[in-house]
């Protein structure tokens, strides 16, 4: 079974790289980019991740817009939002469903919890791919 491909998108380079490294140690195939444009470029270049860890607040294009773009390209890609901000974050189930994110976590996130969520997200992606529709 191939490794789960994870893409960390965060303008905090240190955070993105370190998180990627930690996830790699835990058996994921993780890469990190530092802006949303790079993330979308990768996806458009068919280097499609299974799960995207997406920071909400980034320069130029924020997390919610990026999420919409990703879902437009491939609805089965699962996105977990990471945020350092409390205000106005759509954490409720309704908002999560509406915007299509798999889950949302506040920084600093517990690595074990995050690992668990990535695995669940991957399971959902596989189920969606099998059904051919997004859940």
């Amino acid at each position: 079974m191939s490794k789960v491909k994870v893409l960390v998108v965060d303008d905090e380079k240190e955070f993105a790289n370190t998180l990627a490294e930690r996830l790699n140690i835990r058996g994921f195939d993780t890469s990190a980019v530092y802006c949303t444009e790079d993330a979308l470029a990768l996806i458009h270049a068919k280097k499609i991740p299974d799960v995207v860890l997406l920071d909400l607040k980034m320069p130029r294009m924020d997390g919610m817009e990026t999420l919409a773009e990703i879902k437009k390209y491939d609805p089965t890609i699962q996105v977990i939002l990471l945020t350092g901000h409390g205000a106005g974050v759509p954490l409720t189930g309704i908002d999560r469903g509406k915007h299509g994110a798999f889950d949302c976590m506040m920084k600093p996130a517990d690595i074990n919890e995050l690992t668990m969520k990535i695995k669940h997200a991957m399971a959902k992606r596989q189920a969606s791919q099998n059904r051919g529709v997004d859940g």
Binding site: E14, F15, T18, R22, I25, G84, H85, P108
Partner: peptide, 28 residues
């Protein structure tokens, strides 16, 4: 307080990730 918390949260996330990585590496 919320503003301060937000500003602290990002560097805190980096410290958390870094210490986590160091612990991961120590374990390995």
């Amino acid at each position: 307080a919320a503003g301060v918390a937000h500003e602290i949260n990002n560097p805190l996330a980096i410290i958390s990730a870094k210490t986590g990585l160091v612990m991961d590496l120590l374990e390995l």
